[in-house]
Computed example of a mutant assay.
Amino acid sequence: MSRNSSSPVDIQIGKTMRDRRLAIGLTQAELGAAIGVTFQQVQKYERGANRVAASKLLQVATALDCSVSDLYDDPDPAGHSPSERAMLRLWSQLKVPERDAVIAMLRQFVAR
């Protein structure tokens, strides 16, 4: 691989890092400080220009409050999309009465 080429995996990880960082309201400088690099290095990671070392990837995941596999945006073995996986994670945190209320709400949307 030439020095200026980025692999699709590096680009995907960088994009996911950026999306997650923005979603939780961190600046590149804040993420950089949390993982021990400059904001310029975070920019390179986010563009996929530099690969994130495995040990650094774990630090990134911790700083972004997600798992390393979330950064890879791995496809779910059951075929769930990222939004479906997010819904399943949230669903598992609901109590039975809350689940019943969500089901009732969804039934109303579908009935329209």
Rank of each mutant, 00 (worst) to 15 (best):
D19L: 14
A53I: 00
S81C: 04
A104V: 00
E98A: 15
V96K: 15
M87S: 14
E98K: 14
T62F: 13
V52F: 00
A53G: 10
Q41R: 08
P97H: 05
H80C: 15
H80F: 15
V68P: 14
D73S: 15
N4C: 10
V42G: 01
P75F: 06
W91V: 02
A111D: 05
R21H: 10
D70G: 11
G48M: 10
P82T: 06
D10W: 13
I13P: 13
Y72P: 11
G14F: 09
G32A: 03
A111T: 06
V96T: 13
Q93M: 15
A23S: 13
A86I: 04
A29D: 08
A61Q: 01
M1K: 02
A34G: 01
P75D: 02
S2W: 02
S55N: 12
P77F: 04
D65G: 13
M17N: 00
L22G: 07
R21E: 01
W91N: 11
E30H: 05
G25I: 04
A54D: 12
I11G: 01
G14D: 05
D10E: 14
A49F: 14
I13A: 06
Y72F: 15
Q40V: 01
D10S: 15
K56S: 10
P77W: 03
N50S: 10
A78M: 10
V37R: 03
I35R: 01
A33P: 00
I13G: 13
Q93F: 12
L57W: 08
